[in-house]
Design a protein around this nucleic acid. Structure first.
Lengths: 197, 197
DNA sequence: CCCAATTTTCAGAAGTTTCTGAAAACTGCT
DNA sequence: AGCAGTTTTCAGAAACTTCTGAAAATTGGG
């Protein structure tokens, strides 16, 4: 009954019992959108697509589900699911009486946002800041030469800004889920008088 | 006197009269660092490297300078310089009595930051938000089905968060250079009592 | 401890992005 | 208008990233 090469949309409609073709179409569109966005921000398209699929899925999915729905290989699905797990934005869940592993996404978008922020900061921003400090210190002892002073001033300006970004990011990461939205809205309404919706 | 295939560091030392080898080494390191960072955020390595070179250069450079210092082709240099210009983070400058075009980077890091934020938002975030709204509206009429309601709730949560991010980003983009640092520091000090440096 | 189900790994294939270099276009001087 | 200097363009090459698929490892039940 199941065709070898299946149309992802209608196949998907069967799968989770979606008798709503609008929703199936919307899901496919969201997956494509999320994948596109990922790749413009340096995240593999497939990884973002798998995340989108799990984000919208009403139930946890296993590796075969993911392969079938997105038309990707087992190897790719395995590696991508592992990577998403390491990012902390999907969880493995076990179903009793089933040896397969199932996966479900973090559905709280605030947590999702903060987790992504924390991980990218840890992996990319923090090492950059460290190396930049090291780089700045290479010319610490050479003050006096006009060109070197200028060079140092530019790196110092950059470092100062990045330290501020670092502090703000830490603040966002460390603030409780409840407080973070309040802080954000306060920042906007307390200083200007429009929030825009 | 100028070798065909030159060591970037020593060559560079001659070029802008840097009699400071520490500075030349620091510059090479910064260029590599900035290039690496760019590529992990979806910006071509070379584009970030050209930007780093101009950011630290005490004088405006022409296309040949850039080619020579980074060891890239004329075509690549031309396209990359144009792209940086379109981003608004480097300027063309003309020198009288010289037909070549010279380029200099924005050296004010706050402006640099805001320009990058504005451009990335305009090119990547705003279209995403638009399409996401469209995507959400596909299932507007289908309320009632439990699975569809859940699907809609998830997309609404996501949209709500992204609208907030949108508002904050607009705020940062539109606030004057002088006020933005004040706002940022206030956000940190007004709410917690540590800024960390 | 064995077996079948499931997951992981990784070398090579496929796909995508970025770069080159030479030809075409442009620019402003005479 | 003609010309030398300079910049732009873009097809194909090179480099890099991601994906596949089959073999190896792992896992839990009996």
């Amino acid at each position: 009954m199941k065709s070898e090469v299946s149309n992802p949309v209608s196949d998907t409609v069967e799968r989770d019992g979606a008798n709503d073709p609008q929703r199936a179409a919307a899901r496919e569109r969201f997956i494509a959108l999320w994948g596109q966005m990922g790749s413009s921000w340096g995240i593999p398209r497939t990884m973002a697509e798998v995340h989108a699929l799990l984000f919208l899925s009403p139930e946890a999915l296993n590796t075969d589900d993911v392969m079938e729905r997105l038309g990707i290989s087992r190897g790719n699905a395995s590696m991508t699911l592992r990577a998403l797990g390491e990012w902390g934005i999907i969880r493995r869940v076990h179903r009793r009486g089933d040896r397969k592993e199932y996966f479900e996404a973090e559905h709280d978008v605030i947590r999702l946002f903060r987790t992504i922020l924390r991980e990218r900061k840890r992996r990319e921003f923090d090492p950059l800041l460290d190396e930049l400090r090291t780089c700045r210190d290479l010319t610490e002892g050479d003050a006096g030469n006009a060109a070197t002073d200028e060079h140092n001033r530019r790196l110092d300006d950059l470092l100062e800004l990045l330290h501020l970004v670092d502090a703000i990011t830490n603040h966002v990461i460390d603030t409780s889920d409840e407080d973070i939205l309040v802080t954000a809205r306060m920042m906007l309404t307390g200083l200007e008088e429009e929030v825009d919706a």
